[in-house]
Design a protein around this nucleic acid. Structure first.
Lengths: 147, 147
DNA sequence: TATTACATTATAATCTTTATAATTAGTGTA
DNA sequence: TACACTAATTATAAAGATTATAATGTAATA
């Protein structure tokens, strides 16, 4: 079923005049199929067996290209490395402070906050980001076991 | 007037059993007086003349200590380096995409979103962060001039 | 097929942050 | 005040993520 999303994404690439190389295709496909918002390094490691000669720079280059044409969003959280997300629909994220897991979370867009911010600060608002932090169920269970 | 806030903060340090060294005092004072949410490197550069022998590690160490006792908050945005904020009162931030300026923005805490997220995801929520992005008045004016 | 422009690879460099070990300096107590 | 204990600082190195560079390879097109 994500086959369709992949075809759509490849269509977007073609429209943008971006070449579809095997590595680029693989990065895109991996991102579309992954629910975990992987880091660049995770993508690199995942594709290593398929492309033994691939360079880390290629992963970064492709992520940049995909981001520039709007297929991929870069998420910069507290930890050291960025995570990447195929931005198909609008959603927020909830992040586990213990294990770093990121789960999608749907909530109506906070338009009211944006418009108030415009009034108060005089900015032209273009977008916002919201993340919620806490402990996921798995880590809660592990913490209970230890006691 | 921020003298009072500084004294309060020093009180908190003492209560926590943390030593008040000249460098630590300077980092804290600089953060309290700065409205710009500086990076570690900016703090280091600002205090260089006062403490020519100070190490960058000292800045990081002190920021970590101040963060651990809750006097300072670490902000990780899209750019490469963290910014630091004396978290005295709860507030959100609005960030200029053009010049990077960060302005404080007060809005009632989004408790409703937090509680819904708990229900939907099963997480124990501890906090959230919200940032609004846009163009500040100054950059808007500059953009208009160019046309 | 030849050309051109874009991608990839390999490598080095940069930048931020953390770790380590030795030295220095605060702080409580005699 | 002086001592001793412990934490903090310094200098340095190391780690980790990302970007830059130059050479090589490859896709698309005339």
């Amino acid at each position: 079923m994500s086959e369709q999303r992949l075809q759509e994404a490849i269509g977007t690439l073609k429209e943008s005049g971006v070449r579809i190389t095997p590595q680029r295709h693989a990065v895109l496909e991996f991102l579309l199929n992954s629910m975990t918002h992987p880091t660049a390094d995770e993508i690199y490691k995942a594709l290593e067996s398929k492309f033994p000669n691939m360079s880390v720079a290629t992963v970064y280059n492709n992520l940049r290209v995909l981001r520039e044409i709007g297929l991929v969003r870069e998420l910069t959280y507290g930890d050291s490395s960025s995570r990447f997300d195929c931005s198909t629909t609008e959603h927020y994220h909830i992040i586990c402070d213990v294990c770093g897991k990121i789960v999608d979370f749907h909530y109506p867009s906070l338009d009211e906050v944006e418009s108030l911010a415009e009034q108060v600060t005089g900015f032209d608002v273009s977008y916002h980001r919201l993340e919620i932090y806490g402990t996921c169920e798995k880590c809660k269970a592990l913490a209970t076991q230890k006691h």
